[in-house]
Each structure stands twice: as C-alpha cells, then as structure tokens.
Design a protein around this nucleic acid. Structure first.
Lengths: 149, 149
DNA sequence: CCTTGACTTAGAGTTTACTCTAACAAATAT
DNA sequence: ATATTTGTTAGAGTAAACTCTAAGTCAAGG
C-alpha cells in the first residue's frame, strides 16, 4: 500500500492515464483481458471504478499485448488469475493453475527473446542500409549536379 | 555477386524459403511492399522469377514487418527505392528520396529501441510474477494439503 | 429547467492483413 | 492421353482488434 494514493478512477481517467481508449478498455473487459472492476452502487449503479492496483494490472496486461501476446492468450492468463481468488475452489486446482500461468509466462518470455534477436538483426540491417544511403548522398553532393533536363 | 547461386526461384520456392505463403507474397506485391519481379517471356509469359537479390530483399522487408512496421510504411520505403532505379528521373529528386528513406529507417530504429525497452520491462515483470507463483507453489507443496471437500 | 458531458449497454461498422476461390494455362508425371 | 502440379488473375471471404453509433441514465453548471 506504500505510495498508493488510494484513489478511484473512472474509465475516462484510466483511458487518459494509460493511453487506451474507453472503447478498447470495455472491449478488453468483454474479451476477458481485464477482470470486472468494482461498480458504484446506488443511483450511479453500474459505473466502473478502478483503483491503483487495477491500473497497474491494466498496464502490465497492455505491456504483454504491446510485445505481441495474443488477446486470447492474455485472456487465458487472466482467467487463471481470477480462479486464484475464488476461495471456494478445491485446493488441488491451485497448483495446476500456478503451473499453467508459469508455463504461459515462460512461453511469452521465449517469444520475447526471439523478438529481441530479430529486432537486433533488423536494426543492424537498417543501420547498414542507412549508412549506404548516407554515402550515396555524400557522393551526390560532392559531385557537381548533372542536369538532364 | 560472391556466394550467389544466380538461381531463379518460382513464387512457390520463395514461399518455402521465406515461410511466407504465395497468397501473401502476391498480396505484398499488390500492396507495393515488393517491387514487380521479372516475368518469364515466351510461352510461360507471366510467371514470376525471383533471383537471390530479390530473395534477400523480401527477407529484409519481412523483418521490418515482423518487428512492427506497418505495411503502408514499408510500401512508402519500397516506393522510394524503386524511383532510385528510374534513370529518367531528375537528379535532384534522388537526394530527396535518400533523405526520405533515411528518415523512415531512423523512425523505425527509434521504434525498435522503444520496443526493446518495453520488452525488457515486460520480461522483468513476467519473471517477477513467475518467481512469485513458483514461491506459492513451494508453500503449497511443503504444507500438508487441506481438503475442503 | 435544460443543456452539456461523462457514463452505461448491445451491437454494427471499419481496418488491417491476410487467405482463399474460381477459372483458366502450361508443364510434368503415369 | 490424362491427371497432377504449379503457376496466373480478379475478387470474395475471414479473423482479429478495434472503433463507433444509438439510445438511454445521471449529475452538475448557467
């Protein structure tokens, strides 16, 4: 709880803080990427209220998405996470759930490592090509310009 | 020309060598990601023939795509490249084209650097979460299992 | 009181990037 | 000679991931 402001945020505020549109936030919720947030009671019954923990969770999930995890895989990950908080589940299942989550994370970390490698390769190639173009530019400018017109 | 086999490849061979489907290769060509390849003359007039240089180009382009460059941006990049081989262009334009290509590559390299950073963050978080789950698993297994059933 | 603005929902529409189908041609295999 | 394979085209279909619309609720400001 250290450093937490214990504030609640509307979907609009979360949208501004994360850069994810409200459409997309609701869509992610529907798709099972985000657990159902608390809703206000009384007259404003139904309005979503996010806390700091929710916000951090959304940012983590978005990080997974941004680095190429499929929405369906993220949903799987989140689904298992939700089961962990259901105390009425049989205790034996928790081990299976933990194994599944660990496996999913392992799979993603592997993917990230591959991406890292490919990214490096493309950067090298891009830099090489850039140097080539820069060289061409130099040649262009050092020689008197020929006009064909 | 060193190391080149100077072979020609059909679209099917290119597909097998690159792992890109023939549908996708033709689609990329239509979208302007790949310059029009040579076609056979005579009776087999119309059949695409790719050489080693084409193959390397396709692989570079695919690398850009795989690391998150939008097809439209790749098309822009390629479009400018094609102009370079049109000798009837006015010479002044070549400098502009080189500047544009360098700018596009700079933009992409920046994007890649950002991705690299985000990737690192997500990996750290994923590893942390994984450790947490592993710890939970250990606690689970060291204690006698409680049955609620 | 009434407008403005932020929220709610279900569901329709859009964009991107393929992915495939249909209909046909030409070369190779049986 | 016929069947199979591999190619050609235009254009239709699909899946994922948004993105928006329509119709409505609620509360604060002028």
């Amino acid at each position: 709880m250290k450093g937490d402001k214990n504030l609640m945020y509307s979907i609009g505020e979360v949208s501004k803080l994360t850069g994810i549109s409200t459409y997309t936030l609701r869509y992610y919720e529907k798709m099972g990427l985000l657990p159902n947030p608390y809703r206000m009671d009384g007259k404003q019954n139904g309005i979503r209220q996010y806390n700091d923990q929710d916000l951090r969770f959304i940012q983590f999930i978005y990080g997974l998405k941004q680095t190429g995890m499929k929405l369906k895989d993220i949903a799987l990950f989140v689904e298992d996470g939700c089961l962990l908080t259901q105390n009425d589940q049989e205790i034996e299942n928790i081990q299976d759930i933990l194994h599944k989550r660990i496996e999913l994370l392992n799979k993603h970390v592997n993917l990230l490592e591959q991406q890292l490698e490919q990214l490096g390769n493309v950067m090298t190639l891009a830099n090489e090509k850039r140097s080539f173009y820069l060289e061409m530019l130099n040649e262009q400018t050092s020689k008197p310009v020929k006009h064909f017109k």
